[in-house]
Amino acid sequence: MKRLLLSLLALFSLSAQAALTVRIPQPESLPPMYSYYRQLLTLALEKSGEEFVIKQVTLNEPQPQLALKLRDGKPINLLWAGTTGEYERQLLPVRIPLLRGLSGFRLLLINQTRQQEFSQIQNLAELASFTGVQGIGWSDVDILKQAGLNISAAPYYTILDMLNRNQQVDYYPRSLVEAHVELTVATAQYPLLMAEPRLLLYYPFAIYFFVSPEYPELADALTRGLDRAYRDGSFIALFEQYPPIRASLPVLQQPRLRLDLANPDLTESTRALPDHYWYPGTRP
């Protein structure tokens, strides 16, 4: 009996050691799409065929600091973020766009009292006379600046309040889905916020899972799992059934003035991804 118990304990220990431990950052104030990426991560790991456990690490640092911690694998080993050439060089990118490129379509969140001013804008040069805002260290900042726009950076948790107070910044470029979620949950606290009804920015953009270089087996498992999820339809099912995504897609059918921006930092590896990974109209 003692030998049997020892054998079972040894098997349990080996199983526990073999399980992938995934450590992700969890800010105190969850971003709008946190639940979607968390569900997609679970789906990918389930499809990978590996045993796994997901642990959430409370961190409230800007994205660049999170990326530095991720590079060393401590205390996190996975992060989802908009891709950049630097991230793809320093980290292990899982090159499957988690929002299928929809993150490149941007609505402008503004203060309602400014709507008349924005209704006069006809091109990027005119938009450049206004001040936009993004979170500190976000991948979009350089894209918007390189397009000639005037962009400042602020802590994420302050941005909606700044707009509602009509202080320091004029607009907040936000992806369709994020804009929908933020306006839905923030209406009571920030009653003067609105999505500008006429303009739509677009630049080719992808959000990836990034893994610490110290955990290549995790990157391999996620690549395998996401590919299987695409092939069996479960990825697309989650994407299409996620309520904020479904609710935001009609914006693309509206007659808006589309202002296209280049993304010079988009790598050739991202540009070469198969068509089926991209939502129609978003392929670079």
Rank of each mutant, 00 (worst) to 15 (best):
I110Y: 08
V141H: 01
G82I: 09
S119Y: 09
K69E: 09
S119F: 11
P97N: 09
T113K: 11
S139Q: 09
T113F: 10
R114H: 13
P64W: 08
L66R: 02
E50L: 05
Q120Y: 12
Q120E: 15
Q134Y: 06
A44P: 00
E86G: 02
Y87T: 07
A125N: 15
Q56S: 15
A128P: 06
Y87P: 00
T42Q: 14
S152M: 15
I143F: 04
E117P: 00
S119K: 12
R95G: 01
A147Q: 05
K74D: 12
E61M: 09
N77L: 05
L79D: 00
F105C: 06
L102D: 05
E88N: 02
L124F: 13
R89I: 01
V53I: 12
K55Q: 14
A128I: 11
S129I: 08
V141Y: 05
L109I: 15
V141I: 11
V57L: 02
L127Y: 10
Q146Y: 03
G73K: 05
K47R: 14
G73A: 07
K69M: 15
Q116F: 09
G85N: 10
L92Y: 01
G104L: 11
E86M: 08
E86V: 07
L68T: 12
A128D: 06
N111E: 05
R114S: 13
L79T: 02
L98D: 00
L91F: 06
L98R: 03
L59M: 13
L124M: 14
I54E: 00
T113E: 09
Q90Y: 01
S119A: 15
I54C: 07
R106Q: 12
S119P: 02
N111F: 03
S152T: 14
Y156H: 12
L107D: 10
A125P: 00
Q122L: 15
S152Q: 15
N111G: 04
P62R: 13
A154D: 07
D142M: 11
V53W: 03
V141A: 06
E61A: 10
A81K: 02
K47F: 04
E61K: 13
F130R: 06
L92R: 03
L79N: 01
T42Y: 02
G82S: 13
I143S: 08
K69Y: 13
E86Y: 05
T113N: 08
G101K: 04
L98G: 03
G132A: 11
P93L: 00
N60G: 06
A67V: 12
G82A: 13
L91P: 03
Q115P: 05
E50D: 08
I76G: 00
I121P: 14
G148T: 12
L70C: 10
Q134E: 15
I136D: 07
E51Y: 08
G148V: 13
G104H: 11
A147E: 03
P62I: 12
A67P: 01
K55C: 00
I136M: 12
T42D: 12
V53M: 10
R100D: 03
Q115E: 14
G85V: 06
P155G: 07
Y156G: 11
